[in-house]
């Protein structure tokens, strides 16, 4: 660091080239010596004047402002250049389709558990066929009275169950076509 006593005109000129003409931008230890030299030396004042002139000329260089198009391009960079999972998953937030899939799976499980036999048309047909066989069997007439009561009760229960299920089907819009068949 230059000592304040050694700040002559030559060194002052060098410092003007390094730090510019504004003394406030000089290192503090040099500012006092520079002011003292300026007060005493017309040559120093002329050197500072020339440095100020150069700074003013440099300020005459055109001011370049970013265009509106550049501003919008740079502002849009985060959207165009996603990071993390978004960089390799092009379909938006992956949680949404996963949630949809999970909901559909859960619904399928609820609907499918336990109720499927009542919806099965072949099971209903088998039941009707077995009823017909029972009516045709001659040796079974004596037993028919004994078995009629429980069968009727079972048929009533089944009818009630079918009625409940039909309400659910109507609400959900499933199985309608099958119910319409004669």
């Amino acid at each position: 660091m230059t000592d304040s006593n050694s700040l002559d005109l030559t060194r002052f000129q060098e410092l003007l080239d390094v730090h510019g003409p504004e003394l406030v931008r000089w290192p503090e230890p040099l500012q006092g010596a520079a002011r003292a030299l300026l007060a005493a030396s017309p040559g120093a004042r002329e050197a500072q004047r020339q440095a100020l002139e150069l700074a003013a000329l440099l300020d005459a260089a055109p001011e370049i402002l970013p265009s509106a198009a550049l501003l919008s391009r740079i502002a849009a960079l985060p959207a165009r250049q996603p990071r993390g999972w978004a960089a390799w998953w092009p379909f938006g937030n992956p949680v949404a389709p996963l949630m949809g899939w999970a909901a559909a799976a859960a619904f399928g499980l609820v609907v499918g558990s336990g109720s499927i036999p009542l919806l099965d048309p072949s099971a209903e047909a088998d039941l009707a066929a077995s009823d017909a066989d029972a009516e045709d069997g001659a040796g079974l007439e004596s037993d028919s009275a004994a078995t009629e009561a429980p069968r009727q009760a079972a048929a009533e229960g089944e009818a009630a169950s079918d009625e409940d299920w039909n309400d659910l089907e109507l609400a959900l819009g499933i199985g309608w076509d099958w119910e319409e068949e004669p």
Partner: peptide, 19 residues
């Protein structure tokens, strides 16, 4: 580039020479 040059201080030609 010289369009925004302040005419109050220097003219366009000066600006170009500085540039």
């Amino acid at each position: 580039a010289s369009e925004r040059q302040s005419a109050l201080v220097h003219d366009r030609q000066v600006s170009r020479q500085v540039e």
